[in-house]
Design a binder for these strands. Structure first.
Length: 899
RNA sequence: GGUCGUAUAGCUCAGUUGGUUAGAGCGUACGGUUCACAUCCGUAAGGCCUCUGGUUCAAAUCCAGAUACGACCACCA
């Protein structure tokens, strides 16, 4: 065991430590069980990593996710549970394809897909995904994540593809997947559909046009999109609207609308129409608006598609418009209406523009033939044998919606923080059928084949010639929805991983993908396996900059995790993301905060360094398996007690997902109590090797899940490379035995602290040279014995020459004093006492105390309080009163002795 | 429009089921060459706990309302 360097330099250790962990095999629970590092009988703890998109690099949000998950995982592993954390990455279909297209276009291709063809194009995407994957894995390891790499998965690999095909086929057979011609969100840039929740909205100013279809049309309508009016088939009004009621049911024919097609407009009544907005009547364009589409269904209207999948006007829009872009068509319609004198009003209004969440291009709602998952269709629920869902019967008729609602409502799945349950239910209430087909190339190909009019749906391609597979791919969330079980061996239901680790224990992810992902996993898993995917959902917030802004390249406020690891170490980076981070809330992060935790890591390093040096100098050997040592002094008893308390709080906090609180408790113990008090006392009292050794072992274990690198480095420096802290047992506590020399308890140590702090404070107040050693006289009353036993501690920490402790002693001349915990302490200053200053200091204290006593008096004289408050509270207040009064008396007598 | 969240020291936040003279870190001021650590140590200053009502013996904490900021959902043509 060699002496440690003075400062902790993370870069000198981190990579080697990670390699050492990997080589040990202990990231893999099977190895832990084999080598007896885990209780084979214990309940499992499993997390599957939310797979980062292979679109680039990790950001601070990922770093926070890794820090939180690794904390839980390392804690559980030390607890002896069979712990697995499954790594993986997500192919992120549209996102990745869009990114690669952008790169290819920067390389000079105008239309990459067309120019390269499916095969070549996918080659490029795969190459990009691979590189991105490698970067991400590297970063993940840098954070110290104890992931079981032997189980790594990719949402688009063979195993996952088989899972996807299997589930698709199952759902199709159950009638939950259907193909239909329906209105969808279409991104003309991505040339694909989007799910409802993949549409974002951007507020913008736009023109609202009020016009009539023709001179003799009785109703004016308002629109922000005149070009879609070429496909109108109805006008909807509120059935209660007296202005228009009489027209409901009538059909008007308009010739050559805006120089374009002939229209047949039926007036319909619909409760949804707001009589107050615009003219109170709206033109219904079933092919290009979700709401209108629904009205068309109810009223059996014709659906005329006037915009095609490239965002160009179709033949149905009339010869004059065919082939024009949307914007151009709009101008032309407006012009035509004006020319014909049909335009009545133009006004600027604010409205929301729908845009694609991946490429920000305007969304065109249009009708198209797509694959959907029916969320309202009844089917027979298939219950899991091993992990049945409470409250559901095998064979019971359910819908996907009902399943999703049930497991959360019945608390089979707990969401942390629970307020998100409300959001979750609200989302499900509004849920429409999920459009799962995408017209992009990068993703899971839909396992459907066509031959003429025949359709074949299967896990594998059908036998025989001339079957054509559907060219579309699946929504990326289809495969991520299977993630908790597709990573554990599905579709092999006998897989031991699936049996051992599913349902997973915790799903830790960002609240921003509660709908995208968490809800989909619940849907897919309850359907496929008849069990829940996870027991608890822990939702973290966004990591923002110190001003609370989102980190973005354009703002230039991005803090890159790798830079921070390089500069301050992975442990400091992790801690900065754990402390001050509460579930469901965004957190602000600054480089200063990370630097602060770098300081702490160094502090822990030096605490260890000191303890190691001390133990060695006492010719003792460090022992990693030490039992709770005997307390010899008051300080020993106090620190062991504090350690026990801290460990129990931390354990409690970790069990209840209060990670920030756990970290703060530990930091306070380590820095304030251990380093600032106990170690200083240990220097005075000496011969502490057992207590020091024991405390160090314990705090290294407690800190390990938070700061794996520095704790592991220290552990191995002290106990050798064969001893790996990561698989040591989490501390549990027996009562510390107390040696005969120790008297008093935590409160008594508090008195000691107070005396010392007060002396220091007066020293500072009187600007007494810190090197000057003082003489002190104490009138100790009942506390004499305690203080007698600790004179050396007081002398050392308060820098005293002499201390005289009596039961009762008068204030010496030319001294200043204070009262604390019933004890009077006088510092002899000789001729330098400034009586005026002393008077005013004591007077201030007396006056403050007076106010305090008054408020207590008021309380205690209040009959209502004495009668109604619990006896113990009243007693407590009385105790305070006595203490305060006795203190007041002593202060007054001190004042008097000042003449 | 609907739902939800937040408001405590200059800044970032704790404050567990109502009951300490409301806490921590950073920052600030003052002082320190203590042999583990200046990535350190000591001391101090700094708070109508957003506002207004209510419940209660007792409110930073519970309830109602207001204000400000933020998020999500829906979407109006």
């Amino acid at each position: 065991m060699k002496e440690l360097p003075k400062a902790y330099e993370p870069n000198n250790y981190e990579d080697n430590i990670y390699k050492h962990w990997e080589e040990s095999g202990f990231f893999n629970p099977d190895k832990c069980v084999e080598k007896g590092k885990t209780d084979a009988e214990a309940k499992h703890f499993s997390i599957v990593l939310p797979p980062p998109n292979v679109t680039g690099t990790l950001h601070m949000g990922h770093a926070a996710m890794l820090a939180i998950e690794d904390l839980m995982v390392r804690y559980s592993r030390m607890k002896g549970k069979k712990t697995v954390w499954v790594p993986g990455t997500d192919h992120a279909a549209i996102a990745t394809q869009t990114k690669v297209e952008k790169i290819l276009m920067e390389e000079g291709l105008d239309n990459p897909r067309e120019e390269l063809g499916r095969e070549k194009f996918l080659e490029r995407v795969n190459k990009f995904a691979q590189e991105s994957h490698d970067t991400i894995i590297h970063q993940t390891k840098k954070m110290g994540s104890s992931l079981d790499w032997s189980r790594e998965a990719f949402t688009l690999d063979e195993q996952r593809n088989l899972a996807v095909r299997t589930v698709f086929k199952k759902m199709y057979d159950d009638g939950l997947i259907y193909r239909g011609h329906r209105i969808v969100n279409w991104c003309p840039r991505c040339h694909s559909t989007l799910a409802d929740d993949e549409v974002e909205y951007k507020e913008q100013q736009t023109k609202l046009y009020t016009f009539k279809y023709s001179k003799d049309f009785p109703i004016s309508i308002a629109t922000t999109r005149p070009e879609t009016k070429l496909g109108d088939t109805a006008v909807a009004v509120n059935p209660k609207d007296s202005r228009y009621k009489k027209y409901i049911g009538e059909v008007f024919e308009i010739k050559n609308f805006a120089g374009g097609p002939d229209l047949k407009i039926k007036v319909i009544g619909d409760e949804e129409v707001d009589s107050e907005f615009g003219t109170g009547a709206l033109g219904v364009t079933p092919a290009h608006s979700h709401v209108d589409y629904e009205m068309a269904g109810k009223n059996d209207l014709e659906i005329i598609q006037v915009i095609d999948e490239d965002g160009k006007m179709t033949a149905k829009a009339g010869e004059a418009y065919q082939g024009l872009g949307v914007e151009e068509a709009r101008r032309k319609v407006v012009e035509a209406l004006k020319k014909e004198g049909l335009m009545e009003k133009e006004e600027e209004i604010a409205n929301n523009l729908s845009i694609c969440y991946r490429c920000s291009h305007t969304i065109e709602p249009l009708t198209s033939r797509q694959w959907f998952i029916d969320v309202n269709k009844e089917f027979a629920f298939k219950q899991s044998k091993d992990n049945p869902i409470e409250g559901l019967k095998d064979g019971e008729s359910v819908t996907l919606k009902k399943l999703m609602q049930h497991v959360v409502r019945a608390k089979e799945i707990k969401i942390v923080p629970d307020r998100f349950e409300k959001t979750y239910f609200h989302w499900i209430d509004n849920l429409r059928d999920w459009c799962i087909s995408r017209q992009i190339w990068y993703g899971h190909r839909i396992p459907v084949w066509y031959k003429g009019d025949e359709t074949y749906v299967g896990v594998d391609a059908p036998e025989g010639e001339s079957w054509q597979q559907d060219p579309d791919t699946l929504d990326t969330w289809f495969s991520s929805g299977l993630w908790t079980f597709s990573t554990l061996g599905y579709p092999n239901l006998d897989s031991s991983d699936l049996k051992t680790y599913h349902p997973t224990t915790v799903m830790e992810t960002g609240y921003d993908i509660l709908f995208f992902w968490v809800a989909r996993m619940i849907l897919m898993t309850t359907y496929t396996l008849g069990e829940i995917p996870f027991e608890t959902v822990y939702l973290h917030g966004l990591v923002r900059d110190e001003q609370g802004r989102k980190m973005s390249k354009s703002l230039g406020n991005v803090i890159d995790p790798l830079d921070m690891i390089e500069k301050y170490g992975a442990d400091a980076t992790r801690l900065s993301l754990l402390v001050g981070n509460t579930p469901g809330n965004d957190m602000k992060l600054s480089e200063e905060k990370i630097a602060g935790f770098r300081n702490f890591a160094n502090k822990l390093w030096n605490i260890s360094r000191y303890i190691q040096l001390t133990v060695t100098s006492e010719k003792k050997t460090m022992n990693k398996d030490l039992k709770v040592p005997e307390a010899e002094t008051l300080a020993d008893k106090w620190i062991l007690n504090e350690l026990k308390k801290t460990a129990s709080f931390v354990t409690n906090d970790l069990e209840s997902f209060r990670f920030s609180s756990a970290g703060e408790q530990l930091r306070d113990f380590t820095w304030s109590e251990l380093a600032d008090w106990y170690l200083e006392i240990a220097k005075i009292e000496g011969d502490k090797s057992k207590v020091l050794n024991y405390i160090l072992n314990t705090i290294l274990k407690l800190w390990h899940p938070f700061m794996p690198f520095v704790t592991e480095t220290l552990w191995q420096q002290i106990y050798g490379k064969d001893n790996i802290l990561m698989v040591e047992s989490w501390p549990t506590f027996a009562e510390a035995t107390v040696g005969k020399a120790a008297v008093g308890g935590s409160e008594d140590f508090g008195l000691l602290k107070n005396i010392i702090t007060n002396i220091r404070s007066l020293r500072a107040d009187y600007k007494i040279d810190p090197a000057k050693k003082l003489d002190v006289v104490v009138s100790a009353g009942d506390e004499k014995e305690i203080l007698d036993k600790n004179t050396e501690v007081i002398k050392g920490l308060a820098r005293l020459e002499n201390i005289e402790i009596e039961v009762k002693v008068d204030k010496p001349d030319e001294s200043i004093g204070f009262v604390v915990g019933g004890v009077e302490v006088y510092i002899k200053l000789g001729g330098v006492v400034d009586f005026e200053k002393e008077k005013s200091r004591l007077n201030n204290e007396v006056s403050d105390l007076g106010k305090y006593i008054n408020s207590l008096e008021k309380k205690l004289n209040n009959e209502n309080f004495v009668d109604n408050a619990p006896a113990e509270v009243v007693e407590k207040e009385k105790g305070k009163m006595e203490e305060a009064k006795s203190k007041l008396e002593k202060l007054n007598s001190q004042l008097q002795s000042l003449k």
